[in-house]
Simulated assay, not measured.
Amino acid sequence: MQNFYEIDYKFATNDSYANQEQVDGLLDNYSTTHSPSRKDLLDDIKANFPVYTDQTGKVRILGSERALKIMNQITDHKTDKQLSLKDLTQIDFKLIPPSTNYEMYFVEDGQNAQTSYNAKDTFLDNYSLAKHANYLLQNNKKQNLLNDLNDLQQTVNLSDKQATYRFIDINRTHYLRAIVSNRYKFYDNQIALYMAISIISKYSVEHKQDFILKSMTVTDSKLYAYFLEKSPIKLNKNLTIQTGLVLSNSELGDGSASFKVCYTIQDKSNNRVVGLTDQIANINHGNNPLSIEKDFKNLQLFEEQRRDIIQAVRKVQWTKKLTRDDLDTISYLISHMQAPLPKQLKAKMAKCIDPNKLLGKSYTLMMLFNKFNSFIQNEDPNIQLIMEARISRWLSRFVK
């Protein structure tokens, strides 16, 4: 299903730097809307992830001021509750037209609720019922599933087992968006962004390099943020490169937050290529802030990877006129793209390499990958990350 909320931020030339108070507000605002039991976690994060500023109190990340304001525009009403199977009543499963997928409906504490995202399957997985349930639902045997759940509710050990149920209220509807174990440390979007700013502000001070928060997509559950160094580096008289880090995070318990090295190559005609390399640090939602802080020492590898990327892209034949062999190579790479990549994206990319349109013209690798980039930027952020990593691997086929 689509996100309940989604806001995109793109850097503009007049966007400014956030100050210490605005960055701290990410945690302070979070603490006022969530359980006080998380105060210790927030205190630990502040202790282990200080924010570095210049003499005027500014964090040297351009665009961070407006990005933080946009972050605060997500005014959805999120609640977390400790619940067990015995707390749920009137459980039912219904189709959501036009989809053929079922969602779960139930009552908790007198309030009607329904599942969203993957919460139904997560709930059923907790009782080893997901595959069995989908079979029953698709074969008009819903009552069998309800009987199974009723039996479980009568089983003391299973019925009493608690987890954190993550709800969101939209248009007077109470949605269950995720269920996470009690080991989950709730590094939600505000916290993940705070930690990212802390890490990048430290690097900025140590290397005397300002950054730009180039773009950010924040939804009710996901976060994607691209940080690029402010000053491009000349590769040659026609090309520049900016390196940086991309953060992705989820509040749904479906993986850790991660930092990967990214880069943007641009020529004087404003053709652009965005690439992505390996993960160098992550925020595991089961870890405490101190162990995460130790893991983030891997960000020292950023400087090393940055040098490697610059050296590698210098070898790419960006301005070479495309030949039939080049087009055959790219055609092969596109044809072997697998799910979850959309078929429409694959079709658009394949259409771009029509030999009848490209051969005999001054069409370069940079121009073609810029065209690919224009398609990729319109995709879901997860697809963008997958394709940007793939683009990086493809470029190794076109070195001098």
Rank of each mutant, 00 (worst) to 15 (best):
P97R: 11
K234A: 15
N140W: 04
D109T: 08
T32H: 10
S16A: 07
L333F: 02
D8R: 15
Y102N: 02
G255S: 03
Q209S: 13
I309W: 06
L239G: 00
K94M: 11
G244V: 09
I292G: 01
T122E: 05
I61H: 08
N284G: 08
A47Y: 09
P342E: 11
T33V: 13
I241F: 02
D148F: 02
L193C: 03
I70Q: 00
T319P: 09
N378C: 11
Y263E: 06
K343G: 13
D354G: 13
S116G: 10
V180C: 06
F167Y: 04
W394V: 00
K58P: 06
T319E: 14
N139W: 00
H77S: 15
N356Q: 14
K208D: 14
T329M: 06
M337N: 06
L88C: 10
L41T: 07
S258E: 14
P289F: 04
M387T: 03
Y117S: 09
K346D: 00
Y165G: 03
S392K: 06
N298F: 09
I197P: 10
N140R: 12
I383G: 06
L252E: 10
I334D: 05
V107I: 14
S99A: 14
S84R: 07
I292M: 07
Q384L: 03
Y105K: 11
H207W: 09
K86R: 14
R183V: 10
L301D: 12
T53L: 08
M216T: 00
D87H: 12
Q317P: 01
R172I: 04
N134Q: 05
C262K: 11
A257C: 04
M367C: 02
K361G: 03
A350H: 13
L252K: 03
G57K: 06
E108F: 12
A67K: 00
A119G: 04
L247E: 04
Q154M: 05
L228S: 04
N373T: 03
G286M: 10
A389H: 07
S291P: 05
F11A: 06
K78A: 10
Q90L: 12
V246K: 06
L83N: 04
S248E: 08
Q242R: 12
I265L: 12
S374V: 02
Q154K: 11
I309A: 07
E251M: 14
G244L: 05
L137Y: 01
E21F: 07
D80V: 13
L83D: 01
V261K: 09
G360P: 09
I292T: 11
L88R: 08
D80L: 14
A192P: 02
T264C: 11
P381I: 10
D92P: 10
Q82V: 15
V218P: 05
F49G: 03
T264W: 12
G253E: 00
L26E: 03
S331Q: 05
M1K: 12
K237G: 13
H174E: 08
W394H: 01
R172Y: 09
D44N: 14
S116T: 02
I334S: 05
N287G: 07
K400S: 15
K142R: 07
Q377L: 14
I91T: 03
S335H: 08
K321G: 11
Y5L: 10
T243Y: 02
Q311M: 13
T115M: 00
G63I: 00
L247G: 04
Q22T: 04
I391A: 08
D15G: 09
S269Y: 13
T32K: 08
D125Y: 00
A119M: 02
L223G: 04
K78Q: 13
Q300K: 14
D354R: 11
Q90M: 07
K400V: 12
S396W: 01
